[in-house]
Design a protein around this nucleic acid. Structure first.
Lengths: 119, 119
DNA sequence: CTGTTGGTTAAGCATGCTCTTTAGTATCGT
DNA sequence: ACGATACTAAAGAGCATGCTTAACCAACAG
């Protein structure tokens, strides 16, 4: 059930870099041109372009070029799918904890009763 | 507000590898020894150890050694924080969409009225 | 047409990642 | 004590990443 998307690799990889996360955070505030994305970042424009390429390869960001200006925007879908994987993983853990709790509860009460009858 | 944790780098990096995600998924089902983690994986034990080291460095997994057996378990906390970053990012986007929707709604009704008065 | 702006390509380099093999070191069962 | 088990440490091959600089191109502005 989990791990159906081969692009989870690309998405997590994309989000593993602080520069790219900063770009994503910027894009949650609305679409931006390449220059606008690059402006606060302490690196050359080509470096930013390469980060952008990684983000686009993962599907997190889409961009269109009009005239000589390329405008980028977030694609929320991939973000959701990634969120979902984490959620599923945590949910599996939670369910296990519930079962474990129920199990402990089920065997510990009888033990208590044994202790009571022993003492 | 976002991006406070330097360990987001390590966490996303850790989750970017399918082998490590498989290990995490296995660990949602309960703790496991190194050999148990390695058993379904198509690689040498040292390779698995290295993946485990990455997972431990990120804080996603903790492990203790008893005798000659090392037992690993998930630390849900880091998973939660990562989930939270994604959630925050998506929430920022959602809020923006809401504002945008409200804005469009606010200016489009007056425009309609203008159209109405013009025609 | 000419210069400037916004972006793109390519090459190169340092570093990091993933896996391997080889060679260990502790335990544990008998 | 001795072999088997479970892991660990070290070193290296080979490819991927994250930058850089140096060109280059296409679209506008005057």
């Amino acid at each position: 059930m989990l791990n159906q998307q081969p692009s989870l690799d690309l998405t997590f990889q994309a989000l593993a870099d602080p520069t790219r996360r900063a770009m994503v955070e910027r894009l949650t505030q609305g679409s931006a041109t390449v220059s606008e994305l690059a402006q606060p970042l302490p690196m050359s424009l080509p470096a930013v372009m390469q980060h952008l390429a990684v983000l686009e390869a993962s599907g997190l960001v889409r961009s269109r070029k009009v005239g000589r200006v390329r405008t980028c925007q977030l694609d929320i879908q991939v973000l959701r799918e990634t969120e979902r994987w984490l959620n599923q993983a945590r949910l599996g853990w939670d369910r296990r904890m519930d079962r474990l709790g129920a199990f402990l509860h089920a065997i510990q009460l009888p033990q208590r009763q044994e202790d009571d009858t022993d003492s």
